[in-house]
Amino acid sequence: MPATDLKRADAASPGGGDDISSGLDALESPSAPAARRAAKKAVAPLAAIVFVLVVWQLAYALDVLSTLPSPASVAGELGDLWRDGTLLPALGHSLERCVFGFAASVLVGAPLGLLVYRYALVRTVIAPVLSAFQSLPAAALVPLAVIALGESESAVYAVVLLGAVPSISMGLASALDQIPPLLRRAGVTMGATGLRAVRKVLLPAALPGLVSALRQGWTFGWRALMTAELITATPLPGVGQVLNAGKESASFTLIVAAVIVILAIGVLVEALIFGPIERRVLRDRGLTGPK
């Protein structure tokens, strides 16, 4: 069999050059950097939290704002919300809407971004509309959605989608635009065409930009959701409704507690999901991301 002949021939290389090439390889490969930033990583957010708490407590002690509740009273309020069974269901409802809303936004936004990238006609017609929606505040969308769909879950979802989809599709389209032509050409040379080119070359090449687009889509969707929950009326429980209850009862403590919950979710999603994904994606490509 020629195949076995080839195997044997491949295994044996003429002497001399091997040593030089492996010597060069060893000299020119950087040694792997030691992973010792783990402790640092945990310290930074903790320091930020302590900093905020100290400033807050100081402002309370100096009575900078007469209505400002103390950190302790807000913590107590959060404890009450937890015990009386308001916090967890509200969180559950909001997160459920955000997760499903975000998933739907990805399913709509990613293909739309591909179409904008691929077809000049789609770009001409749809891209300006998407850009326009990107600059539209969610607060302006809520009345529209409520009138069109009633005070319902669908109205909330519509607001989340309109908040997230434009960011995802425009972000993906611009990430695809930035793929080096040489990589596309290499893909074509290797026979990656059509959907295979999308799956094997274009999407992986655009992944860093795609992750940024998804993060921005999530942020916009989350903000839009809070706005929607705040503005639409009672049948839709959620964190936004807790905020609204604070406003109705003029309880600064409750409002600050709700804001902290909303903030915490944003921070946690970034720290546990988008941050690690982005670091991984950038590290694999030898690009230095945020440390």
Binding site: D10, A11, D18, D25, E28, G286
Partner: peptide, 23 residues
């Protein structure tokens, strides 16, 4: 087999940015 042919046995798992221009 192909990597061994170009004298890069054992480089299968190496990232592109970890390698020299010649590699």
């Amino acid at each position: 087999r192909l990597l061994a042919l170009v004298r890069l046995s054992g480089a299968h798992g190496k990232r592109i940015h970890e390698m020299s221009g010649g590699m």
